[in-house]
Amino acid sequence: MPNNQTKKLVQGSMAVALFTIIILLAFYVPVVNIVAMVFALLPIAWFTALHDRKDSVIVVIAATLVATLFGGIMILLLALVFVIVGFVIGDAIRTKKSKIYLFMSTGTALLFTFALQYVVLVKFFETDFIKESMNMAKASYEQSLKLAEQLPMQQSLTTENLEEVFRMMEAALPSTIILSAFILAFVLISINLPLLKRFGIDVPKFASFKMMRLPRAVLWYYLIVLSINLFVQPEVGTFLYVAVLNASVVLWLLLTLQGLSFIFFLLDEYKSPGFLKGLVVLIALPLYSFIILLGIIDLGFNIREYMKDKIQKK
Rank of each mutant, 00 (worst) to 15 (best):
Q143P: 05
T106G: 02
I191L: 02
V122I: 10
G90V: 06
M211R: 15
P204W: 04
D128I: 04
A62R: 01
I291Q: 03
I189F: 08
F124Q: 12
Q233W: 08
D52C: 12
A243M: 07
F124S: 13
I44L: 04
F231E: 09
V280Y: 05
I73F: 02
S13L: 09
M1A: 05
A26V: 01
P204D: 09
L179Y: 10
E269D: 01
L77I: 12
V236R: 15
L24W: 09
A62D: 00
Y141A: 10
K7E: 07
Q312F: 06
R216E: 10
L282Q: 14
D202S: 06
V88M: 07
T68K: 03
A243I: 12
F124H: 11
S180Y: 13
Y288A: 11
E142Q: 12
V85K: 08
F87R: 07
E170H: 10
L25I: 14
W220N: 02
Q154S: 10
A139S: 08
V225W: 02
R94T: 03
M14I: 04
Q143R: 14
H51F: 11
I178A: 11
L260K: 09
E164N: 14
Q117Y: 01
Q155N: 13
G274M: 13
E269G: 03
L18V: 05
F82R: 12
L173M: 07
R216Q: 12
L173V: 08
L245P: 06
N246H: 09
F265V: 05
W46F: 14
F27M: 02
A79E: 03
V29L: 08
L294V: 00
I84N: 06
T95E: 13
F125W: 13
L293R: 14
Y306Q: 05
V120I: 11
V59G: 02
S248H: 14
S156I: 03
W252H: 15
T159C: 03
T48H: 05
I191A: 03
V10M: 13
L267Y: 14
L188Q: 10
M74A: 11
F114W: 15
K310D: 00
I283N: 12
G278K: 15
S248R: 15
L226R: 14
R94Q: 06
K271P: 04
F125T: 11
Y306G: 04
A139P: 01
S261F: 01
S140A: 10
A181M: 07
G278W: 15
A172Q: 12
L80A: 07
W46M: 08
G107L: 07
T6Q: 05
D55K: 11
F199T: 02
L41R: 06
I73P: 00
F186A: 15
L251P: 09
A45Q: 08
V122F: 03
A115L: 07
S13Y: 00
I228Q: 04
K123L: 10
T159W: 10
G237A: 11
V203D: 09
V59H: 01
Y221H: 04
K99M: 14
K210V: 12
L230T: 13
K310H: 02
N246K: 08
G237I: 10
L285W: 14
G200Y: 11
V281Q: 07
I58D: 04
S105Q: 08
V280W: 05
E163M: 01
K8V: 00
F125N: 13
F27E: 08
L121V: 00
A26G: 07
D268T: 02
F264N: 09
L78I: 04
I58Q: 04
V232R: 06
M136L: 15
L179P: 09
F82I: 03
F112M: 06
T48S: 10
F301S: 03
E160W: 00
